[in-house]
């Protein structure tokens, strides 16, 4: 019944067509590349729409956007920023609290394209082995970076942050950044599935925290149609978030994916041939949805 990881999305392509089975992926790539292009238009073409990078940017000389994680490390180091940086943080915090913090990971972050590529190649080559680091490691690292920022008085993660290093490499000059990016690619390909983004990246961990109360969610609204093909688990960068929503009906768990690690990438929606998933809100989380045996809900629910 279960499909092999190599065949992720094959059924979906057959049923929905190639575009139907890659809709959200294409939109995400447009978003990621579009943001890079908006940043790049200045240095590459002299068209200054957006100045700066993902740490802080100023769009059309008016709209400030500040990365809250970077600024928080600075605050821990004892910095009093300009008002414009705080306005930028407020805008970013409000936006991601609504759409889900890890939308940053899957719709903005350029490293996502690298790790997605590694993940894809890993499936195609049938590489199964993986290291067994805990997915909570990133939260420990997140905490450690704040402590280190306070001790060293510097924005510690910016020394090694692959996200901003990648963006700066494209906009301000490459240096040795490509080695760094290659290392992440190889690590994800050969050492650990979803290694960097799924286990270690504290930027993603920080945005996960912003995801906690976000209304915009993926929901397994049509979960009774699930035919256990496993495609969503194989393609998902955070597969642990799917199970409660998809298989939780007997335990009285609603169909909305509430785990804050979900990146709202929408790949599960794409690859599902029977359209179990769709984007929805956290409010449509009725445990009765997709529950096959009503009396079972009465015993386990409430």
């Amino acid at each position: 019944m279960a499909n092999r990881p190599e065949d992720v999305g094959k059924e979906a392509v057959q049923k929905k067509g190639w575009f139907g089975a890659h809709k959200w992926l294409i939109l995400r790539r447009i978003s990621q590349l579009g943001i890079l292009a908006a940043f790049g238009a200045g240095p590459w073409l002299g068209l200054w729409l957006v100045k700066g990078n993902l740490s802080y940017s100023l769009t059309l000389e008016t709209l400030p956007l500040t990365d809250p994680y970077v600024l928080l490390q600075a605050l821990v180091g004892g910095v009093v920023p300009e008002t414009i940086a705080l306005v930028g943080v407020a805008i970013v915090l409000v936006f991601y609290s609504l759409v889900g913090g890890r939308v940053y990971c899957s719709w903005v972050c350029p490293v996502n394209m690298v790790t997605d590529a590694a993940s894809w190649l890993r499936r195609k080559l049938g590489i199964r082995g993986t290291s067994h680091a805990s997915r909570s490691t990133r939260f420990w690292i997140l905490g450690a970076t704040f402590i280190l920022s306070a001790i060293t008085g510097s924005i510690i993660w910016e020394l090694v942050n692959p996200v901003t290093i990648t963006v700066r490499a494209l906009l301000f000059g490459v240096g040795l950044a490509w080695i760094f990016i290659l290392a992440i690619f190889l690590f994800d390909l050969l050492v650990a599935r979803d290694g960097w983004c799924g286990h270690y990246c504290p930027v993603g961990a920080f945005y996960s925290l912003l995801s906690t109360w976000a209304p915009l969610r993926v929901t397994a609204a049509n979960r009774e149609a699930c035919d256990d093909c496993m495609d969503c688990f194989n393609v998902c960068p955070e597969p642990q978030v799917i199970k409660p929503a998809l298989k939780g009906a007997p335990k009285g768990i609603g169909p909305v994916i509430l785990a804050n690690q979900c990146t709202n990438c929408g790949r599960c929606i794409d690859v599902c041939a029977v359209d179990v998933f769709r984007f929805g809100t956290r409010f449509g989380n009725d445990p009765l949805i997709g529950a096959k045996v009503p009396d079972q809900i009465q015993t386990t629910g409430s």
């Binding site: 970077v70 004892g78 008085g153 924005i155 000059g173």
Partner: peptide, 23 residues
């Protein structure tokens, strides 16, 4: 501890003398 490495000073320098430290 204060510089968030955004590069706006680099962009706004009319003589393009500023650079950001690369890896």
């Amino acid at each position: 501890s204060a510089c968030i490495r955004c590069g706006l000073c680099v962009r706004d320098c009319p003589y393009d003398i500023l650079f950001l430290g690369q890896l």
